[in-house]
Design a protein around this nucleic acid. Structure first.
Lengths: 339, 339
DNA sequence: CTGAAAGCGCTTACAG
DNA sequence: CTGAAAGCGCTTACAG
């Protein structure tokens, strides 16, 4: 079943069939109609390989993610897919986590894609020059390094972290504020901890080393960290900014397991504003990340570049902002009450 | 940069280059070496469209999901991607939710894929015959309807639900057990509620209509349902099987908001065994779904079919099983204690 | 083991 | 507005 069959069926040449399908304005209306009817009757679908061979376009966007899992990535994928769909594109997805030493394009059926969206989360994996050297149009998500010749989109962790710390400082002295981070080398965790430190400095307090800890983005690490802090007697009356919601929930559970009330004895703010936040009690305050926008903008940026390959690279940062819920409210007396 | 350049660079014909790359055993070792060197030096990458046009294979697997989000889908995607990667395939992903009235293949850059994995969750969208009529090799995930000529893989909700109910009946009389479902028409929710009812019958109790409710797969619905039940005085001393973990957590939060202790006053079991379960307090008992296996098996099944197009269709069901945590433990006295 | 040649199914100048 | 023809970059019988 090829264009040839359609041509015979409708009594025109294959060139006309091709035009009727792709540029109907170049063909007489009746011919178009006749060709379309044949297409329907025969159930013809153009061979995308032949088409791609000529046009060098597949309307497929490659997406390379650090690791495909968790609420964050599923939200990102969903918004990217929605947007791609609106624009007539499709997503070819792959994790790049297993092949740390390879090129981010590695292993990809990459060359079928018109362009690539690469998400990077680790400092060590950032090789923007290598990416720029690929001949594929590329958008990098998660890193912002102006001056590099590729489009980048990332979250502005600073706005959200500053807002969160300002909120904590309203009810808690700077020296009683703590940051429970993910692992060092993770771009977001590093940015968030730097912003945390900066916010304390602006308040006139130089953070001590024990105010900033690194671990990993997990519930368990949050729990363990908080347990140690409680045993040192450091948490009552304190406030914690966690590098993500899982850590924050781990901290909250440890506090609870040790009899501390939240937010009475300990105020907590997470990061990501995931759907966890509304499910736990007390509801978790968290810095909202506009994940939907990130996915949408990444697709938009790539499509823009496909259409204007020589446009100068754009670097956009999406502001983040605090959503206050119960876990960080200021209690008038510091007395215990279960939220 | 094409195969022609490589041929000139290494002083052989394009046919030999092709063979050196694809079937090196048909070419002399030295020639292979020379060609490979040229490929490296020139940075040649074969044009996948030309290749696909000839071979009719792209090593791309299309994946059509009801909706790309939530922990469930991200886990599924991750295991499918891992497995595809191992087998040298890549995933072309799309949601089919926005195009309810179209063919599940609709909108896809489908024809670039060698085959299709379609996940279905709603009864109304099940059109297995339509899928079979596609000329693409297909594996259907989420539906089990033996007799239909496509491979299917799904969870056996029955094993898990029966186990969960048996566990609930150990500490709670049959007439005090409730099922809080998702929306009707959702295949899993329907199967789970049917298994719930069946389990009570086996215990000699015909479930009354108010023991089984339908709503949606959300935290809020769980909360609202539980609130109504509490106001009717039905929950203290009861046990609830929820159709997913979000509903279960909503129920647990409502119970807590109304002063009921878990599991002392109310025992709760969720479904899915998502990562929520270990994060909430008390930790949520839940029916575990082998999502990893589902993703892996779906890819395996499709690849198997690609290699043996005429094999008879297989239908596999993956057993589910209860994981008991704190929310459903049997308390000796029914007295209140915070878990 | 290697090469010349045909051909996969399209698109697109080029003529008419 | 339409058709004949060239050609996209590969693979694969067919000969040698």
């Amino acid at each position: 079943m090829s264009i040839r069959n359609v041509a015979e069926h409708s009594g025109v040449s294959i060139a006309t069939v091709s035009r009727a399908l792709n540029t109907p304005e170049m063909v007489s209306p009746e011919t178009v109609k006749r060709v379309r009817r044949s297409v329907d009757e025969l159930g013809y679908r153009p061979n995308l390989f032949a088409k791609g061979l000529l046009t060098r376009r597949s309307r497929v966007i490659g997406v390379s993610l650090p690791d495909i899992h968790g609420l964050f990535f599923s939200e990102l994928m969903r918004s990217a897919d929605d947007r791609a769909c609106e624009l007539g594109y499709h997503l070819l997805v792959s994790s790049n986590a297993h092949r740390a030493d390879e090129n981010p394009a590695g292993g990809f059926a990459l060359d079928l894609a018109d362009g690539l969206i690469v998400m990077l989360t680790e400092r060590t994996r950032v090789d923007l020059d290598g990416i720029a050297a690929l001949d594929l149009p590329t958008v990098v998500v998660g890193v912002d390094r102006p001056g590099v010749p590729v489009d980048t989109i990332s979250f502005d962790n600073v706005t959200g972290a500053l807002g969160a710390v300002a909120h904590l400082l309203e009810g808690t002295p700077a020296q009683r504020c703590f940051f429970a981070g993910g692992h060092q080398g993770n771009i977001d965790s590093d940015e968030r901890s730097a912003a945390f430190a900066e916010a304390l400095r602006r308040d006139g307090h130089e953070p001590t080393p024990d105010q900033i800890s690194y671990g990993e983005y997990s519930f368990d690490w949050g729990w363990n960290w908080a347990t140690r802090m409680i045993q040192k007697g450091l948490l009552p009356g304190a406030a914690v900014l966690a590098a993500n919601d899982e850590i924050a929930i781990g901290v909250a559970n440890a506090a609870r397991d040790y009899g501390l009330s939240i937010p009475g004895d300990l105020r907590i703010v997470g990061f990501d504003d995931s759907s966890f936040c509304g499910c736990v009690r007390p509801k978790l305050s968290s810095v909202h990340l506009p994940v939907d926008e990130l996915g949408r903008e990444a697709v938009d940026a790539l499509v823009r570049r496909l259409e204007q390959p020589d446009a100068s690279p754009r670097h956009s940062r999406l502001a983040t902002s605090l959503v206050v819920r119960d876990s960080s409210r200021i209690t008038t007396d510091g007395a215990r009450h279960d939220a």
